Simulated scan of single mutants.
Amino acid sequence: MGHGGNVIDELMADHREVEEMFSRIQGMMTGGGQELRNLIDEMTIELVRHSVAEEQYLYPAVREHVEGGGAMADKEIEDHGRVEKMLKQLEKMGPDDAQMSPLIRQLMDEVASHVQDEETNLFPMLRRACTPQQLDDLGDKIRRAKSMAPTRPHPAAPSTPMASKLLAPGAGLVDRARDFVTGRGKS
């Protein structure tokens, strides 16, 4: 969850972690049972934390520092909304649900497209627009945000940075309490 380094290094490490989880999930798609469910929960936790942190700190920085950053940030937030809705659907499914496999494939495609866009467009532009100190400070903010973020999808929650900064810690506390009681994310 917290890898260290500047914002770009931190988020790219998250991307590699989720890609590795996707690879493991693909290997379990048939007959994965509870182990598959646990891995999907773990992947959901990481994707939700990552998305919340980006919405709180990365996208406002992109709006401020990158020319045309407002449109870029809006597009990335729309991507997050689609992913969060899919995660919410997955959360309700058992590992034997016939719709799980197609939904996971759709999720993987959506996340892969989002990652590619960030890594080939957004991150290089942000690196050129910000000083190394600004990128390091953003990395610290992202790590703090991920530690307080919700662990479950909340697609109806507002995605504005201010609303997220106000609501995410409370939702995160409730989600972590639920996870503790149920053992979710402890595979």
Rank of each mutant, 00 (worst) to 15 (best):
P169N: 02
V83E: 10
D74Q: 08
S147P: 07
M1S: 15
L173H: 08
P60F: 01
H114M: 10
T160N: 15
I142Q: 05
L126V: 03
D97G: 06
D9S: 08
I40G: 02
V181F: 07
D41L: 07
K165G: 13
D137T: 14
I104Q: 00
P158I: 09
V181Q: 03
R16M: 04
P158H: 11
L90C: 03
Q106D: 14
L47Q: 02
E78R: 12
V62I: 13
M125N: 12
E42M: 07
R24K: 15
M162F: 14
T30Y: 10
H3R: 00
L87N: 11
R176Q: 09
Q99S: 12
E54D: 06
A177Y: 11
R49Y: 03
Q106E: 15
R144Q: 13
G69K: 10
A53P: 01
S159H: 12
G172E: 04
R63W: 08
K88W: 13
M93K: 02
P169L: 01
K85P: 07
G2A: 15
G81M: 11
H65I: 11
H15Y: 00
G33A: 13
E91N: 11
T151A: 08
G172T: 09
L58V: 07
R178E: 09
P95I: 05
D74E: 12
G5R: 00
D74W: 06
F123P: 04
G4T: 00
T151D: 06
D41H: 11
P161Y: 08
P155Y: 03
K85E: 15
D175H: 00
G185D: 03
G31F: 03
F22I: 05
V115H: 02
Q56S: 07
E64Q: 14
Y57D: 12
T160M: 13
A145D: 03
A168E: 01
P102S: 09
L138S: 03
R24T: 04
V52G: 00
D41M: 08
R49P: 11
V174C: 08
M21G: 09
L122W: 02
M12P: 01
D74A: 06
E46V: 06
A177L: 15
S187K: 15
E17T: 15
T131L: 05
E54Q: 06
G81T: 05
E91L: 14
M93A: 04
R128W: 05
S187D: 12
G139W: 02
E54V: 12
I25E: 03
S159R: 15
M72T: 07
E78P: 00
A145H: 01
E67D: 13
M86P: 06
F123A: 12
E84A: 12
V111K: 01
R37T: 12
Q34W: 08
Q106Y: 09
L58Q: 06
E10F: 04
D109A: 15
G68T: 13
A177V: 14
T151H: 04
K141L: 14
E84W: 07
L138K: 06
R176I: 01
V18D: 00
M21L: 13
M29L: 14
Q56G: 04
L36W: 06
G172W: 09
R37K: 12
S113T: 13
V174W: 01
D137L: 08
T131E: 06
Q134E: 11
E46D: 12
L135P: 04
E76S: 14
A129M: 09
M28E: 08
P158F: 05
S159G: 11
